[in-house]
């Protein structure tokens, strides 16, 4: 199967998952295309479309929580950023994804504990 076709399949399958979670694909289409292309490559290389921006540890339980869309397993953290770690998905109300920043999980947890 060619990469383009697989990217389209990812779009369709992942849309189904992210929609009920309150997310959409980022309006930054260039970024979305790049990330989906990386995921097609990762699936070919490693068997699953893992998050292109997080490293695998080689432990199945850990790594499987990084298969895209990984929102369900990192929800509080991503909700706080209004985006997933790699920015492929953003909250539905986000119009300008460039306004969002990556907040490390540690910083997120520290700020949560302060509240």
């Amino acid at each position: 199967m060619d990469a383009k076709k697989r990217m389209d399949q990812f779009r369709t399958m992942f849309q189904r998952i992210i929609d009920p979670l309150g997310y959409k694909f980022s309006p930054d289409t260039e970024l979305v295309d790049f990330l989906l292309e990386q995921e097609v490559m990762l699936e070919k290389e490693k068997g699953s479309p893992f998050c292109p921006c997080q490293g695998l540890k080689g432990e199945r339980e850990y790594d499987m929580k990084l298969v895209c869309p990984c929102i369900p397993f990192h929800r509080d953290h991503y909700d706080a950023m209004k985006r997933c770690w790699c920015g492929l998905y953003v909250h539905k109300d986000v119009e300008d994804p460039d306004e969002l920043v990556q907040i490390s999980k540690k910083d997120f947890e520290a700020s949560r504990n302060k509240c």
Binding site: I17, P20, L21, S48, R60, E61, M64, V67, I71, P72, F73, R75
Partner: peptide
Amino acid sequence: CHDWRFDIRNGEFLDAKEI
């Protein structure tokens, strides 16, 4: 495939009940 878990009684995905 990716270890996603569902409750057979109602079909809920254990890590996000909206799915």
